[in-house]
Design a protein around this nucleic acid. Structure first.
Lengths: 198, 198
DNA sequence: AGGATTATCTTGACATCGTCAGGATTGCGC
DNA sequence: GCGCAATCCTGACGATGTCAAGATAATCCT
């Protein structure tokens, strides 16, 4: 930690901006998000972010990309905890999906909304694809090695289910579920998922 | 249609603003949405909307409320088309859900996102609850008259499934599904739903 | 080692936005 | 026909995103 007063060169502005951006996003939501506020929080001029991210959408795209990486990590962590059974592993991925959505609702929404389209960020596209691939592989493992090029109803079914559950939960549209404890809520989603994952 | 030049009193500004707001929302998305642009499109001063909706969030809340009413209508229309079998009716509601999301993606996202929270609009709350009740009643009819006060896994399961499917589709995250024809896509969702709606 | 080039950050300006205060215009009740 | 309330406009303020131009630091090159 270099604690000099106000060095002209920040040293690691990019990371600092991303960190601050996530805070601002979590506090104010996407609507209240402001580039200048992020710059202010880091203690830097209002035009400084432009050099690293070009655009406001560029910052959001980079933030979303990092979100997808942590998102994938959350799913992998839960899947690893579940052991070796493909079915349990897949359910674990779903629980990791929910973990992330609950832990970083604003970031989750940013990732699946599109206020940063037109950013043509390869980083974002890659991170998103990687997260999706994790689910696809989980399904493939479940039905015994066969990715299947066509639209897989099982894959898109469980994905839609888990994603919708996460969205509705963090939107506050399932009050009874929101009132549950974390473990109850987990069991609830588990129960729903078991019916689908044959 | 009163076609006088620029009457000081518009006559039906509120409806006109809502209509223009929906156009702007569809064209620019929530991020590019602007009160002044809506006012400009209607040919009215930039402060005119304030009197009818108070706030920018107020306009969005009113727009979301009308969205929920059309949303409910879309589900009811499909359910009615499906006849009397509770199972088919419920699946119909799901297809109506998808119809609306595909037809008005930006509005759909607005309704389930929260850029207008703090608007404490009773109109919005009521319209949202009414749409939800339609689904709950569909489930109750399916299992033979019994609303059930507790968290119903079947209810939240099909809701999550359909909602997630709609979200992922309009977010462009299911390219193979997006490439389908409308009828193919409908059959695809039908197939997924049938597994869940026992 | 030292000058030049490049990367990084700042300053200032501009158009646009949401919101508020105050004024103008119209419709309506009496 | 008169006053009142509803409706709409004008003007202003602070905040925002973006761009151009300048300042400062790091690095590279010989």
């Amino acid at each position: 930690m270099d604690e000099r007063k106000t060095p002209y060169h920040h040293g690691d502005l990019r990371s600092a901006l991303l960190e601050a951006a996530e805070e601002v996003l979590a506090e104010t939501g996407v609507s209240g998000f402001s580039l200048r506020q992020v710059a202010r929080r880091v203690g830097v001029s209002h035009a400084a972010p432009a050099h690293h991210f070009g655009d406001a959408k560029g910052l959001l795209a980079a933030l979303a990309a990092e979100g997808f990486r942590r998102f994938l990590a959350a799913m992998e962590a839960r899947a690893a905890l579940a052991g070796d059974d493909p079915r349990e592993r897949l359910i674990g991925s779903g629980l990791g999906y929910l973990d992330f959505a609950q832990g970083s609702p604003a970031l989750f929404r940013l990732m699946f909304s599109a206020p940063m389209e037109g950013a043509k960020s390869a980083e974002l596209a890659d991170a998103g694809t990687a997260a999706f691939r994790h689910l696809a592989e989980g399904i493939a493992r479940l039905r015994g090695e066969d990715p299947g090029p066509a639209a897989d109803p099982l894959l898109y079914g469980v994905w839609s289910l888990v994603h919708g559950f996460a969205e509705l939960l963090i939107s506050g549209r399932m009050p009874p579920v929101q009132a549950m404890s974390a473990t109850e809520r987990e069991g609830f989603l588990r129960g729903i998922l078991r019916d689908v994952v044959t």
